[in-house]
């Protein structure tokens, strides 16, 4: 497969922002960056035609103590998907919001991830709960959240014979 355009974009990013990228396969580029560089790179690739933010995802690496945040951005012009990957400390999960770059399509993904992982996106004014109503527990998608224990305590009655099965 030809990866001419992909390599040119990686070279452009290296020349303009001094950040290394990697061509994974045709139509896929991976850029690993520091969280301080996120806004700078986002703005640059948006200007380069990467206008459609497909998704933002968080991976919780419990042992390493980090959240890996990935931004998947599509360019309709070049027909290429760039994945921006950065990591933050999961105890102090704070990162700049990209709402200034990709507007509300970024805002809604950040709102979801704030609820499910407890990541704070600085600069996003709308981080109110989305799916979970009256949720008092910790962010439920964290790897250290023991949902079995939580639901047992919260929703089942240990005295009730019929619900014993949840405690075995």
């Amino acid at each position: 497969m030809e990866v001419v355009v992909e390599e040119r974009i990686v070279k452009d990013i290296k020349a303009n922002l001094n950040i290394a990228g990697e061509v994974k396969r045709s139509r896929r580029i991976l850029i690993t960056l520091e969280k301080e560089d996120l806004l700078k790179v986002s703005e640059w690739i948006k200007g380069r035609g990467f206008e459609h933010l497909s998704a933002i995802s968080v991976v919780d690496w419990l042992e390493a103590g980090i959240y890996e945040i990935t931004y998947h951005v599509w360019s309709q012009e070049d027909k290429i998907l760039i994945t921006l990957k950065t990591s933050i400390n999961r105890q102090k999960a704070v990162i700049d919001s990209v709402i200034s770059v990709w507007d509300r399509s970024a805002g809604i993904h950040e709102r979801e991830l704030h609820e499910l992982f407890g990541v704070n996106f600085e600069g996003n004014p709308d981080l109110v709960p989305l799916f979970l109503e009256d949720w008092e527990g910790p962010p439920p998608f964290r790897k250290d959240f023991n949902w079995r224990e939580y639901t047992g305590e919260k929703y089942y009655d240990q005295e009730n014979e019929r619900e014993h099965v949840y405690y075995e």
Binding site: H52, L53, W74, Q76, L81, R104, S105
Partner: peptide, 24 residues
Amino acid sequence: AIRLGATGPVIRASGIAMDVRRDD
């Protein structure tokens, strides 16, 4: 459409020919 993250038939009705089947 692009700012709000539209895709599929919605974005194609707004003048942007975006279709994963053809583009990717």
